[in-house]
Design a protein around this nucleic acid. Structure first.
Length: 473
RNA sequence: GGCGACGUAGCCAAGUGGUAAGGCAGAGGUCUGCAAAACCUCCAUCCCCAGUUCGAUUCUGGGCGUCGCCUCCA
């Protein structure tokens, strides 16, 4: 089975083959830590997580780099208003980013380079570009000369004529040769020194532009050519286009072989969620409203294909929560059901087919929603087989293996909230004591308290089981 | 103005040139002391029009609608 990925560069799905056999070098655009990430940002970050997980399922070793943009205009503005340095301003948002990623069970990348810690790499690359006349100095700023890079526009399929005709072009407050030339380095503004946002460079003191960090840091950690570069669609132009121009002009090598772009998440009104536009929802908002992080994770990666736009709604989130519940309930049932004496041959074949179909769906440009659909089909059949006592030892093993296949991507089935299980088990034991002592008031109080916290108890003849639901008051 | 995407049941959503996965919600039923879980049954002809085709939701053209990029943006 070959992994096929939709490459923005060609606009088609291509068989994936890394440069070095068995080893994938992947760079993904991370957060600008000027605020909390909103769930739209997180959709992209979880998409990266899905890519790296499936690459490993497909047998590759992965070196994944995700940058943290810790200097840009917004950060400068905010730090100035807060009367602090950019480093201090950014610290809590960096921490929040890692917390959010952990809450959503994203695997850690191998490297999280920060822009401000890689100024020498950027200065070095800019110097090369100036030397090669791909860049020029104008009034203390350094700009990339797009005219020197004929391939400019290949990724986003925008030609420069189109850019010039655009209704919204930069005003000429800068002394640029061409309106679409972009900044590599910016001369210091009066406040920058106090903000801790000025560095020395042979071409003058100042700070880096936004795009250069990705070119410089990806080269530092992954070399001249990346197997995969991923980001949100809105980064295609100009950010990724500019990265290509900088890197290829400086390195004379292809920058990234495959470009993956994830679609954005829309808010409830159907419009793109965006920080600058105002209304946006953070993970904290959703969790505070009682949504289970596992459901949010499942919604963000499995509700729709990564190249489809998706709308955030409480109904969709609830549906995702139910799907997670169903997966976990089923896994739990398979695990605790003693196998029947014999295996069901037809069921065995179905499980094998579904496992193959699931894998094929993921190999086909990471179609997790489709793969999950196949799995839910089988869960219904397997539940019926369990009802009928037709699940033998081999069947049980392959059902567990199938769930492992799915959890390799979704990672919500075996996930446990640390410490929760112990506490709930303790309260259940306390409640059982109370019931034995005929203290039903206390027993019911414990059950009600847990219900408020989002834990439902189910009494069955095999004992008490518990599960997580949305908290209720 | 330029470029592009999308429009599938109440909601989310996959998909295919041969009469449309899955989840949520809803209705009825089985099981159960009750509840829960689980299972069974029911619930769409794919925005509109024209064309290509034996046959189109799937291809082409037009229309309508929604949205994105062209500016910071995952």
């Amino acid at each position: 089975m070959t992994l096929r990925l939709h490459n923005t560069l060609s606009g088609t799905k291509e068989d994936f083959e890394p440069l070095e056999e068995g080893q994938v070098r992947m760079y993904t655009c991370g957060p600008t830590v000027w605020n909390y990430a909103h769930v739209g940002n997180l959709r992209a970050f979880l998409f990266y997580d899905l890519v790296r997980r499936h690459l490993r399922v497909a047998g590759y070793r992965v070196t994944h780099v995700m940058n943290l943009t810790d200097i840009d205009d917004r950060i400068l503005d905010q730090a100035m208003h807060a009367g602090t340095t950019i480093a201090e301003y950014v610290a809590p948002y960096v921490a929040a980013f890692f917390e959010d990623m952990a809450t959503l069970r994203a695997e850690r990348a191998e490297h999280y380079p920060r822009a401000t810690e890689h100024i020498p790499e950027m200065v070095d690359m800019i110097a090369t570009l100036i030397e090669n006349e791909n860049a020029y100095i104008a009034d203390g700023d350094v700009y990339f000369r797009i005219a020197s890079f004929p391939a400019y526009g290949a990724l986003s399929h925008l030609d420069r004529a189109g850019l010039k005709a655009g209704a919204r072009v930069a005003t000429d407050k800068y002394d640029k040769e061409s309106v679409s030339d972009f900044a590599l380095w910016k001369k210091p503004q009066p406040a920058d020194e106090k903000l801790g946002a000025v560095w020395d460079a042979p071409f003058g003191r100042g700070r880096p532009g936004w795009h250069i960090e990705c070119s410089a840091m990806s080269r530092r950690y992954l070399g001249d050519t990346l197997d995969i570069h991923a980001g949100g669609v809105d980064l295609t132009f100009p950010h990724h286009e500019n990265e290509i121009a900088q890197s290829e002009a400086a390195n004379h090598k292809q920058f990234a072989r495959v470009w993956l772009h994830s679609e954005f998440l829309a808010d409830a009104t159907g419009e793109k969620m965006s920080k600058s536009a105002g209304g946006f929802t953070t993970l904290r908002d959703l969790v505070g409203a009682g949504h289970d992080p596992l459901a949010i994770r499942f919604f963000l990666i499995a509700n729709a294909h990564y190249r489809s736009r998706m709308r955030l709604s409480s109904e969709a989130l609830h549906a995702a929560a139910e799907q997670v519940r169903r997966l976990r309930e089923f896994a739990d049932r398979v695990n605790r059901t003693p196998p029947a004496a014999t295996d069901d041959v037809e069921l065995a074949q179905r499980i094998a087919d579904v496992r193959a179909a699931y894998r094929a769906a993921l190999d086909d440009d990471l179609n997790l929603p489709q793969g999950v659909g196949f799995v839910f089909d089988l869960i219904r059949e397997a539940n019926a087989a369990l009802d009928a006592g037709r699940v033998g030892p081999l069947n049980k093993g392959s059902l567990q293996a199938m769930l492992d296949d799915v959890d390799a991507h979704v990672d919500v089935i075996r996930a446990q909230e640390p410490g929760l299980a112990d506490e709930v088990e303790r309260l259940i034991a306390e409640r059982e004591d109370a019931r034995r002592g005929r203290d039903f008031a206390k027993a019911d109080r414990i059950r009600d308290d847990l219900r408020v916290r989002g834990i439902v108890l189910e009494d069955s003849k095999d004992g008490v089981r518990w599960r997580r639901v949305a908290p209720s008051g």
